[in-house]
Design a protein around this nucleic acid. Structure first.
Lengths: 205, 205, 205, 205
DNA sequence: CATGAATGAGGTTTCATTCAT
DNA sequence: AATGAATGAAACCTCATTCAT
């Protein structure tokens, strides 16, 4: 909080986190070397310790950092209260597609999948902040649709998974398989067609 | 200095692979210690090297081993030629659910997701053997449904992803989030309801 | 966890090389433990890797380091151009004796003999730098003696070996047999008497 | 000592020793793997332990085995008592050359040079059996030549080294440098010319 | 604030050696 | 007599972490 000399007000942690996400996603947490993180961030390895207690504290920061952005996206949905649900779901998937395409959340998802077993606290924190926000929000939407007669009587909890699963798949596809040479996945098309299929599937009659 | 234990037949590679899958899934490949693999397999660390060239050869074996089983499941589907497609898709998902529940494929899926970036050959081999078998088979099914007029004109390639995505999600859920304390996912119900939703969604009018 | 010791200038590689030569000469390359090298150099084992890629890179450095010194000794000889050759040969042997007695080249010679088969590049590098300098220089000297009528018509190539062989023997004797308890060899006397014998042997009539 | 069945009366140790000499000479003692020795001898690694206590016992056997042959060669020389010495020295060198060319003693010499520091007993045994026989025999010859007036008053101990050194050099050259691609050394020519040079050098006036 | 230098702890890999068959 | 299977011990090498500057 001291602007001190002429210096940007510490973009440092940002840069380190960004670099770390890249390296962690590429090599895995245990396989990543802080030397590489430092090099990519343009710092010395020792400098990382000025901003982060630990290698694992850095992992935590990387994941929590991404979590923040993800949640905001969904907040908007809960607001709209009385409109029909179907367009909102379509919009949810479209937003998901854009997030998959234009943010680094896919890398974080892969990272969480990879490291949660070995570092449960980190997994739990992510589960609480991300999954714990998005899934209930979506579930509420579906329940509203059922209540309003827009949808048939279905299991809302499971329906949520049916809806979001392709976006998870897309995140993995892009962060894992495309770098391997797999065919590029058209995420927005997938989101759009999936919304269409699922909404028809849930509709009454 | 005791070679001790009488040579159990040639279950050795099997036992090692099983132990390794557990440890790799738990700690990640880089984080796993061969000591732990050996202990869980009831061998000395050095004995692993009698059967596997390398730590990474062991990873490869673990994944190829699981791939084998996964593929057989799908072979059956291509056989049935003239029947309507919808029940086959439902059956595909049901089989997927059972696989997720009763085999260790979910662990392998997580492992592949985690390690493919750092070890591309392994990822590619998996992609070729597993994804390369299942996805085309399912796609062919859907195209047949479209041709026969059972389904609307939709993008078959994307529809496949819509169909299988929840099973991927289930695999991750079980292998990653449930051990963290997440609510248990009823995979068979999910498969069943998802089949219902998607098939309705794809049907003509 | 104590990086301790203040950075001594850049004597580090020197110190490591010196320590390594001792240990390699004593235990052989394969039998030498980097722990011992490190201890003798007053560093941690890991520190060696700050300066040398590899154990074998260290061996290479040890040998190339010694090669440098050895060559300079001979340079002087080629300079004197018109003087009679015999005194130069005597001087060559005297220099050889001093080198055997007062430098660590004998250890390096033993090391090269020991490790060249297993590490051919290293042997070849030494052959090129050391043998490739000394032997031709001496041969040129002898040919000059023959041309000037100082010596009989003999095979110069072989004569060179006759001349230098006792110094090689001396190097081995001192580095291998004396540490075993063999009688001390008076290298300077040997050089002197050998020069006398060989020069008389080569003289005309 | 039981011819038992129809089997050769145990050529086994021989074969193992021969194989071991090759492998030791190539990789050095510490770098050699008993697996390789076994493979080259056509046995299993474990079988070696039926004939030799230890890896080092095998090294000892290898060296002692070669020592035996070497000594016999020289025995003949001491017998001839009254003849002039010069031809005997020439013959000594000729025999040395043949030994260098047609036996595996050069490999043993290199091995002794390489391993004596790390395994002094072995070096000492070799020194006693080989050097301890040849050098004194040669020295006696030279002293006889001095006494009979054939040679000048020279230091016999050193003269011996002057005489044999080229054969040591030849042994090293052939076992170390020629496999590296160095020019082939004509050992018999060297022995012959060297005998000529040295004998002229020692002669009176 | 930043880093070069250093290291302890630990992991993979190798190998001489042994035992049961 | 012979071996395949097994292992303890150790060696090389890496890397997160720390301190002096």
């Amino acid at each position: 909080l001291k602007p001190s000399i002429k210096r940007r007000p510490d973009a440092r942690p940002r840069e380190i986190i960004d670099a770390a996400l890249d390296v962690f996603a590429e090599k895995g947490f245990a396989g990543a070397r802080l030397d590489d993180v430092a090099a990519r961030a343009g710092l010395s390895k020792a400098a990382i310790y000025l901003y982060f207690e630990d290698k694992i504290a850095l992992l935590d920061a990387v994941i929590q950092d991404a979590a923040g952005g993800a949640i905001e996206s969904v907040a908007a949905l809960s607001a709209n209260d009385r409109s029909p649900v179907s367009p909102l779901l379509a919009q949810l998937l479209a937003t998901g597609a854009r997030t998959v395409l234009h943010t680094r959340l896919p890398l974080v998802v892969k990272l969480v999948i990879s490291e949660s077993r070995a570092h449960p606290e980190i997994g739990r924190r992510y589960l609480a902040t991300v999954a714990g926000q998005i899934l209930p929000a979506a579930k509420a939407l579906i329940e509203r649709g059922i209540a309003s007669g827009e949808f048939r009587q279905i299991d809302a909890e499971l329906a949520v998974k049916s809806i979001v699963a392709p976006m998870v798949l897309a995140a993995i596809w892009r962060s894992v398989f495309e770098p391997l040479g797999a065919l590029r996945l058209d995420v927005e098309q997938l989101a759009s067609q999936h919304a269409d299929l699922i909404i028809r599937g849930m509709r009454k009659a």
